[in-house]
Amino acid sequence: MNTRKLCVALGLTFAVASAFAESPQEASIRKLIQPRLGDGAAVDSVTKTPYSGLFEVRVGSEIFYTDAQAKYLFVGRILDANTTEDYTKARVDELSKIKFSDLPLESALKTVKGNGKRVIAVFEDPNCGYCKRFRQNLQDVDNVTVYTFLYNILSPDSAVKSKNIWCSADRNKAWDDWMLNNKAAPTAPEACNTPNDKIKALGMKMRITGTPTIFFTDGSRIPGAIDAKGLEAKLASVK
């Protein structure tokens, strides 16, 4: 079976599996594995895979594998021996997808460059050095609409800086001034309301653990400060 057909088969396998309740064997494996993962780690699903009798154990967006008796736990990636395609990464990417239209875009900064036909959403912290690098890279990308969610997770004063920016007369300019030129926004009025808490709760629900995290209209995400060339390539691949 070639790589493309195998990928389709894997997708169908997991799609069908997710549409039904766990089998008795999968439920049994869940019960055996759960105590071995330690406190705070909850098994979300157990699914039989096409990989030599292995079972996928999903904990949040993380994937592990075990055998039919739950005797061994495999931590790592499954690759195609011929093409080196990473099937575990493909599965994690699929699990990490969102419905782009569900994002509360009214609670984001909106910047339109050129015709703005290509659209991304970015979760950023004002104290994030990698976010500032990404902002520099964005200057070389045209014909894009960028929705920026101020996601305050790095420092106690991140929320303060975000409030000052959100409450500025020109939010986009205040954001660019800070991220590109290190020019702080004026102190916001106490009575000014922000979506800070709402966005932080949303980011946690979406399991965003670092900034920047970039989302595309197909629901996929890329964590980290991707360069302009990489962003252009990704945008070209989004249908």
Rank of each mutant, 00 (worst) to 15 (best):
S162E: 05
K117A: 10
E124P: 05
A174M: 11
W166Q: 01
D157S: 15
C128F: 07
Y130S: 10
R133H: 12
N182I: 11
N181T: 09
T148R: 13
F123K: 02
F134M: 15
A184E: 15
R171M: 05
L154A: 09
N127M: 01
A159G: 12
I153M: 00
D140K: 14
V144K: 01
D176E: 14
F123E: 01
R118M: 11
K117I: 10
N143F: 08
A184T: 05
Y130L: 07
Y147W: 09
D125G: 03
S155G: 06
N143Q: 07
C167Y: 11
A121N: 08
L154P: 11
E124D: 11
N115A: 12
T148C: 12
D170N: 12
C131V: 02
L150Y: 06
N172K: 05
K183S: 08
A169W: 06
C131Q: 03
T145K: 13
R118T: 08
Q136H: 15
V146A: 03
V144I: 08
Q136S: 15
G116M: 10
V119R: 10
N143I: 10
D177E: 05
A169V: 13
D177N: 14
F134C: 04
K173M: 08
I153Y: 02
D170K: 12
K183A: 07
D125R: 01
K163Q: 07
R133A: 07
F134W: 15
M179E: 12
P126G: 01
Y151I: 04
N164H: 11
G129T: 09
I120N: 13
R171G: 02
Q139H: 12
D170E: 05
D125N: 03
T145M: 13
L138Y: 06
K163S: 01
N164S: 08
D170H: 07
D142H: 12
D142V: 06
F149Q: 11
D157I: 15
N143K: 04
V144A: 00
N137W: 00
T145C: 12
V146D: 09
D142E: 12
I165P: 15
Q136D: 13
D177C: 05
W166E: 04
R118P: 05
K173Y: 02
V144Q: 00
W175V: 06
P126D: 00
N143C: 01
Y151V: 05
L150T: 03
S162F: 06
C167P: 09
